Amino acid sequence: MIEDWFAQNKLSATDALLEQKLKTHYIDLASERLGGETLSCSDDFFAKMENLLKPGRGVFIAEKFTEHGKWMDGWESRRSYGRNNGRDSDWCIIRLGIRGVIRAFDIDTNYFRGNAPEKVSVEACVSEMQPDKDTVWHTVFEATDIEAHSQNLFEIANDTVWTHVRLRMFPDGGIARFRVYGEAYVNWDDFVDGELINLASISNGAKALLASDMFFSNKNNLIMPGRGVNMGDGWQTKRSRNPDPDWSIIKLAATGSVNKVIIDTCHFKGNFPDSFMLEGCISDNDDFTDDTVNRTWTTIIQNTKLHAHREHVFTKEIITEKNQPFTHVRLNIYPDGGISRMRVLGNRQG
């Protein structure tokens, strides 16, 4: 039997549910899109450390080689057998794009079949500068066996806010991607009194909880920093064939007012929504899959026309009181389409 080298492995039903939980309730603190950065490593002879934080799961190109050997889409060190240079492992230091509490790791060895490490561990530190030889590292995930050519998902229990992590692999080998799932920490003292805060920013701790449809792209793109780089970098639903709008529910970074809203249809030229409406509510429950939970949605902006490939700014259209608090907002789009980004600026309360 000839093995299909181009086939990606699939998660078990249990791990698929875990991955869904991680992507729904947490963010990838090390994401390159959020400013995550690989700083240094012990060795990346075959494949560069920067690949660890790239989007996707990594690819395999059979005919592609470099002067060092087989090209691999990940981080891969040379063979040390745990003896070379006095090291028992290879390591890579990563600065988190958002400092925060770590809840889980996805250590993906996709396409590393005969060159995956035997074990991995993760250490973390708190540092305002780039870690050096004097940095104190704390083990947050003990050395554990991992599977080749697999997503290896691990939950951890740790409530410390970290700024950097150090991924170790024993004794050497390759890892395609590394995700650090957790919750963003925001120092609200960094904001000045009266400053409008983007309460729908993933960098400030907002979360995209649920959407009616994510056929073309993910709801999390709505609250990412910066403008969308292309049409895939937004939230886009399939073409609707029913009268109800598509919607996305965002948990705000903190309870706060809504004083300014930005809806950006950047790159959506032939598939932007005809109009939108924004609603808000107060809720101590983030599970919006349960229809029995009693919530009252308040209209913040009534149904309003949108245009193609444009950043729309709304202030006068907001009909709620200036200081009315909300914990969640629901973006309704009529009847369907794509939104690149949504900003909800207001004052934090409490």
Rank of each mutant, 00 (worst) to 15 (best):
M1E: 06
I2W: 02
I2L: 12
E3F: 13
F6T: 13
K10S: 15
K10Q: 14
L11N: 14
S12D: 13
T14Q: 14
D15W: 05
D15G: 10
D15E: 15
K21A: 10
S31R: 04
R33H: 13
E37R: 11
L39T: 08
S42G: 14
G58C: 03
F60I: 10
F60Y: 14
A62Q: 14
E63S: 15
F65T: 09
H68S: 13
G69T: 08
K70L: 03
W75I: 10
W75T: 09
W75Y: 05
G82P: 01
G82M: 07
R83I: 14
R83T: 15
N85M: 13
R87H: 10
S89L: 03
R99K: 15
V101R: 09
A104N: 03
I107K: 07
I107M: 10
R113W: 08
N115R: 06
N115E: 04
N115H: 07
P117C: 07
V120A: 09
S121R: 11
V126G: 01
E128P: 03
Q130D: 12
D132C: 11
D132L: 08
T135K: 03
W137D: 06
T139G: 04
V140H: 02
A143C: 08
T144I: 06
E147M: 13
Q151G: 11
N152M: 02
N158L: 00
V161H: 00
V161N: 01
R168I: 06
G173L: 07
G173N: 07
G174K: 08
R179K: 15
E183W: 03
A184M: 07
Y185K: 11
D193S: 14
D193F: 04
E195S: 14
L196D: 09
L199Y: 00
A200V: 05
I202T: 13
N204T: 11
N204C: 10
G205C: 07
K207C: 10
L210I: 14
A211H: 00
S212T: 09
F215M: 11
F216I: 04
S217N: 09
K219Y: 00
K219L: 11
N221Q: 07
L222H: 00
L222I: 06
L222T: 01
L222R: 00
P225L: 03
V229W: 03
V229S: 08
G232D: 07
T237I: 01
R241H: 11
D246Y: 02
W247M: 08
W247K: 05
I250T: 11
I250R: 08
A253E: 10
T255H: 12
T255A: 12
I262L: 11
K269L: 09
F272G: 00
M277H: 01
C281G: 01
I282T: 12
S283I: 01
S283R: 02
D284G: 10
D287C: 06
D287M: 04
F288K: 04
T289C: 06
D290R: 12
R295Q: 01
R295K: 02
T296F: 06
W297K: 08
T298H: 02
I301D: 02
Q302M: 05
L306V: 01
L306G: 01
A308D: 05
H312P: 05
T315S: 12
I318W: 01
K322E: 15
N323A: 14
T327D: 12
R330V: 04
L331V: 05
Y334V: 09
Y334P: 08
G337C: 04
S340M: 04
R341G: 03
R341Q: 02
G346D: 09
N347E: 13
N347P: 06
R348C: 08
